[in-house]
């Protein structure tokens, strides 16, 4: 059955608006009826659908997570939030100024520390629950290392009035992507703060000068920078990843999506999501001699979903 492998392989998303619409409606209904507690199941259903309708080299991805797993994490996250805000409220009500100040300080420190915890937990969970042809992804990063990196970079970003942010983002991506495994495929991120800083500076200046018009091209440059700096490696062979997304196409996508949402008061959201995923997936290509048959299962089982919801609650965007 061996065939000559083409040089490029493309991702495809083939989810359909009407199907996604049905899933959204059911999720919506059940979330309201359960006062929000259905959320983890709703999320699992969407992830399953989207993974299963994303194809690479002729095979679908699979999301193995379940609502039940994520519900446990969801409860933990709610617990943390209740304790955090509860102590803030209690301190405020006590009327004691120095106590309030201390609690506010602790609140922010805990919040900053929670972010890397959440990222770590989410990556471990999400990666372990994603598979392709039965081979699971994995994240092997160390939580303590990530927390140290995160805290150091947050402090540097504050001290430099945000300039260090470019280095921060790239440090984080380097660490995270470097620790992702897909069977025996390893990943490497080669972006660096300086390039990224100039890219952002140029993007923002041109966006301002063009009254926001350049934003779409800027976004695609960012996307390209993120994607093209990822290198996959399989048995010593490099597999560069390429983006073909164009600013003009992204502009058209965004404008149409915007009108779709506004004129339907948001009900067209599933179709918007399909269009967006199709756009991004079809613009990511893997170059080189990828052998889809020779991946080996390398990761062990992992069971803790609390990070995943934490990332949602903190409104972090990982991808």
């Amino acid at each position: 059955m061996e065939q000559t492998q083409p040089e490029f392989r493309q991702f495809t998303y083939y989810g359909k608006g009407p199907e996604l619409f049905k899933i959204y409606i059911i999720n919506w209904l059940l979330t309201i009826v359960t006062l929000g507690f259905y959320y983890p199941w709703a999320k699992a259903a969407l992830l399953k659908y989207n993974y299963q309708h994303t194809q690479f080299d002729g095979s679908n991805f699979t999301f193995h997570g379940t609502g039940k797993e994520m519900f446990k994490g969801f409860l933990k996250v709610i617990g943390v939030i209740v304790v955090l805000y509860g102590s803030l409220l209690a301190a405020q009500l006590s009327g004691n100024a120095s106590l309030t100040l201390t609690v506010i300080l602790i609140f922010y420190i805990v919040l900053i520390l929670l972010v890397p915890f959440a990222i770590h937990g989410s990556l471990r969970y999400r990666a372990s629950r994603s598979s392709w042809r039965g081979i699971h992804f994995g994240y092997r990063g160390d939580r303590t290392t990530l927390v140290k990196l995160f805290v150091k970079d947050v402090l540097l970003t504050i001290i430099t009035f945000g300039i260090y942010n470019s280095w921060f983002i790239n440090d984080l991506r380097t660490y995270i992507i470097g620790n992702i495994r897909f069977g025996n495929i390893t990943f490497e991120y080669t972006g660096n703060g300086a390039d990224f800083f100039w890219l952002n500076l140029k993007g923002r200046i041109l966006t301002g000068l063009s009254f926001g018009f350049y934003f779409f091209w800027y976004s695609m440059e960012l996307f390209e920078y993120y994607i093209e700096n990822i290198y996959a490696q399989q048995d010593g062979k490099h597999l560069p990843i390429r983006s073909t997304a164009k600013g003009g196409d992204f502009f058209a996508l965004t404008i149409v999506n915007f009108f779709l949402l506004v004129f339907t008061l948001g009900l067209a959201f599933p179709w918007v999501q399909v269009r967006t995923l199709q756009f991004f997936m079809s613009n990511i290509w893997v170059q080189g001699e990828f052998d889809g048959n020779s991946l080996v299962q390398t990761e062990e089982e992992y069971k803790d979903a609390s990070g995943d919801d934490m990332v949602d609650m903190l409104d972090l965007d990982l991808l």
Binding site: N27, W28, T31, I32, Y39, A42, K43, L46, F258
Partner: peptide, 14 residues
């Protein structure tokens, strides 16, 4: 926020 839980920013803002 309960009913727009899973929805998008535009709807939530409206």
């Amino acid at each position: 926020s309960l009913i727009t839980n899973d929805l998008n920013g535009v709807t939530a803002v409206i």
